[in-house]
């Protein structure tokens, strides 16, 4: 997976690239927006790590412009501002995710993997989270190499949780994506599907990866 790191602080750029390299990405650095444009024109990247305060312009404005032309891969924005309002502004401008400085490379790598797991971003047929893998074409799941026998909804749920691994998936989101709008969903239908999936994961030895955030939703832990 090829990533372009747009960051004007050379040391930070180099360290980020090195760290991403160690995490299995092929990372290139661009020191300003001009260099970023040149790199994007010269090669195809799967994702972008974008710092906001660049010497030749505002990263967000640049991103908004390029987004309208649909010529930019998914972007993870690094911001030094953080705190209260900037998150919202960043996501509005077309950033797919953001991370507040100072960050750890492991966190950048995890966020990038999450971005790349989003449906439609990359045509990878297999999702892999730790010992669990999921073939999105054949809709087959394996844990520690053993095949999991999943019903259709359980497979859909596992795919959803895997695509969002490392973050909480709300009950409502699960309901919306597992059931069609007109289907009558009983209040505990989601809970029932989750607990069936959990039992099967437990049997395969990875039940501890599925966490319940009571009153909110569920999360599949991403182990690195």
């Amino acid at each position: 997976m090829r990533v372009l790191v747009v960051e004007d602080n050379q040391r930070l750029a180099r360290l980020t690239c090195d760290g991403l390299g160690a995490a299995g990405f092929a990372a290139d650095a661009a020191g300003d927006l001009q260099a970023a444009d040149a790199a994007l024109a010269a090669a195809s990247f799967d994702a972008l790590v974008l710092d906001l305060g660049l010497p030749d312009g505002d990263g967000l404005a640049w991103l908004r412009e390029r987004r309208q032309a649909r010529s930019v891969p998914p972007a993870l924005v690094l911001t030094a501002r953080g705190a209260l309002e900037d998150r919202v502004a960043g996501l509005d401008a077309g950033a797919d995710d953001y991370l507040v400085k100072p960050f750890e490379v492991a966190e950048v790598a995890a966020r990038l993997r999450a971005l790349l797991r989003r449906p439609g971003v990359r045509s990878d047929v297999e999702l892999v989270i730790g010992p669990i893998s999921f073939d999105t074409n054949r809709r087959e799941a394996k844990a520690h190499g053993e095949r999991l026998e999943l019903a259709r909804r359980e497979a859909d749920l596992l795919e959803l949780l895997m695509r969002r691994a490392g973050s909480v998936v709300r009950r409502q989101t699960i309901e919306d994506s597992l059931y069609s709008f007109d289907a009558a969903v009983t209040p505990n239908a989601v809970e029932a599907t989750v607990s069936r999936l959990r039992r099967k994961l437990e049997q395969a030895g990875c039940g501890d990866m599925l966490h319940t955030v009571r009153g909110v939703g569920y999360m599949l832990e991403e182990r690195t």
Binding site: S167, R170, H211, T212, V213, R214, G215, V216, G217, M219
Partner: peptide
Amino acid sequence: VAEDVASLMAPLAIRQNRKIAVEA
């Protein structure tokens, strides 16, 4: 707000072997 905060902070809490729950 409670759900947002919980889903934002749950990954960190889980990493630290703690749970977060919401009762609304």
